[in-house]
Design a protein around this nucleic acid. Structure first.
Lengths: 187, 187
DNA sequence: CAAAAAAATTTACAAATGATAAAAAAGCAG
DNA sequence: CTGCTTTTTTATCATTTGTAAATTTTTTTG
């Protein structure tokens, strides 16, 4: 997915603003298993996914908990770092070799302060992430694990072929054993 | 809580911008049980809570599911409406008589388009909501209902005295009966 | 291709949660 | 205060989910 398409997806941008954004963006390729964002730090870089899949996870008592999958067109960003300037609680790692567009958070901050179109673009970007997160929260609150699995299957069926089930189970808020049971029932 | 304090809490604002915002804000008092936001509509008003408690909920198969409590200093807004301009999925009702500051969404949009400081203020506002939502999602994914209840108690102990337990149970993603059991265990 | 490692499934049992109904407690109107 | 309504708790049983360990399948690596 080309950078123009990704940027415009959040909110239309006048040509000058788009050019200013693009001027700050470079490309990079990372192998599978590479950590893009590490918890406990104030992250200085953000990414747009040109191709590939990543996951965000947090440390829990027993193992880690995947709470987000990013794919083509998504933004990879430590929300906590980005919003509050404080160390984030999430790790983000690539699950496949990924082509990414990358950008310094500080450059983006400068653009936010100087270009109102970019500021509003950033506002929309965060807003869209918020909606997605809120919808997931609600589905966690009143759907069964089986319904959540079926929803995920119909929304992003390719995920199941590209991501280990242990991460999907964790994303659904259940154990891998539970997920196996659900899958067996459906078959 | 005064409006100045609420506005500044999200992000500092230069005096002129603050004044522009304040010029669009009026005050209103609503009784307990009043519906501020109704699902299926594009909401035209947003609120800041001066005093009182509200809850946001969505319709589910069996009854409604509370997914957010708003209290002093919080913003009440249909995120879906606000971000995407599409009809929202949430209702918001007052759980106490509430003193609110209110504002037309359209006035805010105009300010976003014309004042870069307000655009960035709005960006921060949404960002803070996102962090809160994300943290709740993570806690839903890997904490037990009992842990979530204890967390809620320590974070906002007054909520328990001001909100019926049925809403708190729903907010925690469990039934009221389960919540009663948890409360009995702790005692 | 074969061996080793990792991932996924299955099983048995334990713990947590849900559904339902009934009892107890708390809140409210007259 | 009394009676009525609403809220909360308790009890029972069914279902779901978790834990742990063993087994199978898949993937990786030499």
């Amino acid at each position: 997915m080309e950078i123009e398409e990704i940027l415009e997806h959040f909110h239309p941008l006048p040509p000058a603003s788009k050019a200013a954004l693009k001027a700050c963006i470079s490309e990079a390729r990372y192998p599978k298993g590479h950590t893009l964002i590490r918890s406990g730090r104030v992250e200085k870089t953000l990414y747009f996914i040109r191709s590939g899949i990543v996951r965000a996870y947090s440390d829990a008592d027993r193992g880690d908990v995947t709470f987000w999958f990013g794919k083509e067109g998504d933004v990879v960003i430590s929300m906590k770092s980005y919003v509050s300037g404080q160390p984030g609680y999430e790790h983000v790692e690539t699950l496949e070799a990924c082509d990414l567009y990358q950008m310094k958070a500080q450059d983006l901050e400068m653009l936010f302060a100087s270009d109102i179109h970019i500021a509003n673009w950033g506002r929309k970007l965060i807003g869209q992430e918020l909606i997605k997160t809120e919808e997931r929260l609600i589905s966690m609150q009143f759907k069964t694990a089986q319904q959540r699995y079926l929803d995920l299957m119909s929304a992003t069926p390719d995920l199941l072929h590209r991501v280990p089930l242990c991460h999907i189970a964790s994303y659904l808020g259940i154990t891998q054993v539970s997920l196996s049971r659900i899958r067996a029932e459906i078959r």
